[in-house]
């Protein structure tokens, strides 16, 4: 009577549909940024150690980790803003669409038209809403009023703020709420039609409602853009990202699809961090 059926079944692991789709998505996505063996020093202090990380096209990649882990530093290497800090030295490569951006011959201006950035605190220019958006395209030589009007409207629509500001485009951007200012900054970023958008804790200065709007916006934006977001808010990373990288002391501890990282992280340090045991 004692059958062997269940003994066979002991190893019958059920592969769920979400697990299947994760495995498939890892193979198919094209890569925008390919970081290989990246090291970075601020004078004598090493801030990034042997970072190996792909950024996938039209996906949201979140970078999490405790303060000082190097996540913002890494983000700023992707548009070479980190070079503004005196004494910075790097080794290794970051290939953007196949070209090494750390190479001396790579023009930083070219990179920054492709890679936009949104900062922690909304930083609109002390200008009108219209001029905030038109500023970038004007620098790139667009003078035609009609084209500029179109860019302004498209960018504001793209950042889901058009309906809130369309009747006051000439008013100073400082009159907007914090959440609106941040979406204006995202619209400003969109105006130069970037390929990648970097976000450095874009909602940490916003209230929950504005945070939700920006998060919804990120979900929309990833249809057209590749997004890399640094966030302190782990729930946010879990909510909005497709891939998550966990960094600690300048090292990349774990990088995988977000579902796996927040349900079955492989590294104990990741598990300890996301469950709040340290950090």
């Amino acid at each position: 009577m004692h059958s062997v059926i269940s003994v066979k079944a002991l190893n019958k692991k059920i592969v769920t549909s979400s697990e299947k789709s994760q495995q498939e998505s890892l193979i198919e996505n094209p890569i925008v940024f390919e970081t290989d063996d990246l090291n970075l020093w601020y004078s004598d202090t090493q801030a990034l150690k042997n970072i190996q990380l792909p950024i996938y096209e039209k996906n949201v990649t979140a970078i999490i980790g405790p303060s000082g882990c190097g996540k913002s530093t890494y983000l700023k290497t992707l548009n070479r803003m980190v070079e503004l800090v005196p004494g910075v030295q790097t080794s290794g490569t970051i290939k953007y669409r196949g070209k090494n951006i750390l190479d001396k011959s790579f023009k930083v201006e070219e990179l920054r038209t492709q890679v936009g950035m949104v900062f922690q605190k909304p930083n609109p220019f002390p200008k009108s809403i219209y001029d905030n958006i038109a500023y970038g395209p004007k620098i790139h030589g667009i003078r035609n009023k009609k084209i500029l009007d179109e860019i302004v409207e498209q960018s504001l629509r793209g950042a889901y703020i058009w309906d809130e500001v369309k009747d006051r485009l000439k008013q100073n951007a400082y009159g907007l709420s914090g959440g609106q200012q941040q979406r204006l900054c995202i619209a400003r970023c969109l105006a130069i039609e970037p390929d990648v958008i970097l976000m450095d804790e874009p909602t940490s200065a916003l209230d929950p409602k504005s945070t939700l709007k920006v998060e919804e916006l990120i979900q929309e934006l990833k249809k057209e853009y590749s997004i890399v977001i640094v966030t302190h808010n782990m729930q946010q990373a879990a909510r909005i990202s497709d891939y998550t990288a966990f960094m600690l002391n300048g090292e990349l501890v774990e990088f995988t699809d977000t579902n796996t990282l927040f349900s079955m992280p492989k590294d104990k340090r990741t598990e300890d961090y996301i469950t709040g045991r340290f950090g």
Binding site: I5, S6, A9, K13, I14
Partner: peptide, 21 residues
């Protein structure tokens, strides 16, 4: 009780098993 066993395995391994099969 076999369901409970499956749940313990899920708890430890994070994977779903069918022990009733």
């Amino acid at each position: 009780l076999t369901n409970i066993a499956e749940n313990v395995m899920y708890l430890v391994k994070g994977e779903t098993f069918d022990l009733n099969g």
